[in-house]
Design a protein around this nucleic acid. Structure first.
Lengths: 231, 231
DNA sequence: ACAAAAGTGTTTGATCTACACCCATGG
DNA sequence: CCATGGGTGTAGATCAAACACTTTTGT
């Protein structure tokens, strides 16, 4: 009987400010393949599932090893198991793909290697395997989930201004938002709370600093909490 | 190196009219296990992934074999890969779970066996493995997706009345809906179109028959169409 | 004083909800 | 003509978009 290998890969998103643009760009790290098939092509970071790790911790372990990143937000995306995903000689691989968000500070600590490079999602190179399909799906999920959950948190630090939060939404959407209406919507949703402090040194009126309201639990992935999922 | 088995299982939903209740009940078929571990317990229909099938066709094949069903709606739910999902002696299993909708006519054609039984989701027996967690998650996804997509179609035939469509929504929600407002919302969404025909023999005013508007494509699972998914 | 972003108010239109009411058919 | 569900109308509440306006800081 032929073997079916099980791999775990991750699509990692980060935002980077652009010098000559008003919106930040959505970027993701890719790893250059050093083996056939697709040697030299860019691919998602990932690796085979080891028998002593569950899926999520396998994703985390690979991320630390290949990119040096430890995302604060990590969620399962989809399992890809088509027959023609890999080259014939390699054998069949089923990939369970996760997606992750990291904030800018974490990116700075990431590994700087010739074999890891960050690309803008709107300007990707040719990818190995079906990884382009996977990335497209992950981008779609990110944009979608942005609208009804609070994952923007994954791109931000502990405290942040409303403008920063709005810029995250704008970057992911790819278009601007009305600051006044954005403020009202977010505040009305009870997703964030005022810290009482303000950000100073801004050359204009100092904005309030907010933090995420951990008391409010949005049911964005149902009865599957990280702990229960492992059971 | 230890072996990791890959299984594919499915949570199948159907609706059944109840004689002494206004709402239909949401039901799913379970299979009695004939082997350890959990011998005698009820479990989701499923089986090991065979090397010559992709994930979705593996799910379909198992469904035909164990329950005789060929669902019109089938979508991937989640991959479960915790370390303690199975008993120690059995070895580790990663399950890729699908969920499916069948309509009442199909249920009638289903296999009638001692080892397959339909249960109301609100009245489940003790299940094998972590299948209870899986079912809870599937129910949550069904209820959720009902609100923003057109999956109710999966419970209905080619044509249907607005009352039938409403009853599907009510059964899944578990509560009644205002017929007048429901009508307006559905019609405004362009999800269905009038066939011009009516349902007769009803002892009251004959309702129009509608069909789903195939021209309208709702982006409910993004760039992952069934064909692309296999690539 | 001025620029620039923070933050507030207001108008308008769309959409949801509840519920009254008319319509068409079988008995 | 009556019961029953099909189907329409409408007033009030809620919510989102657009945009004018006021506030508070650094320079």
């Amino acid at each position: 009987m032929e073997r079916i290998d099980l791999a775990v890969s991750t699509v990692i998103f980060a935002l980077r400010p652009e010098p000559h643009r008003d919106l930040m760009t959505l970027r993701l790290p890719l790893v250059r393949r050093i083996r056939e098939p697709y040697e030299g092509r860019w691919a998602l970071p990932g690796g085979l599932l080891s028998p002593d790790r569950d899926l999520e911790s396998s994703a985390r372990a690979t991320l630390v090893r290949t990119t040096g990143l430890t995302p604060r937000y990590l969620e399962q995306l989809y399992a890809f198991g088509g027959l023609d995903r890999s080259a014939v000689e390699t054998g069949r691989v089923v990939s369970i793909v996760y997606w992750a968000l990291v904030h800018a500070d974490e990116v700075a600590q990431a590994i700087d290697s010739d074999n890891v490079e960050w690309f803008a999602v709107d300007d990707l190179p040719e990818l190995a395997f079906d990884h382009r399909t996977i990335v497209d799906y992950a981008v779609w999920r990110l944009r979608n989930k942005m609208e009804y959950s609070r994952i923007a948190h994954g791109f931000l630090g502990e405290t942040f201004t409303l403008a920063q939060l709005r810029q995250v939404h704008e970057a992911v959407r790819g278009s601007a938002l009305d600051p006044a209406n954005f403020r009202r919507q977010i505040l009305a949703s009870d997703a964030i709370e005022d810290t009482g402090r303000r950000l100073t040194g801004t050359s204009h009126r100092p904005p309030r600093l907010y933090r995420y309201n951990t008391a409010v639990q949005l049911a964005d992935h149902g009865p599957l909490t990280p702990s229960k999922e492992q059971a």
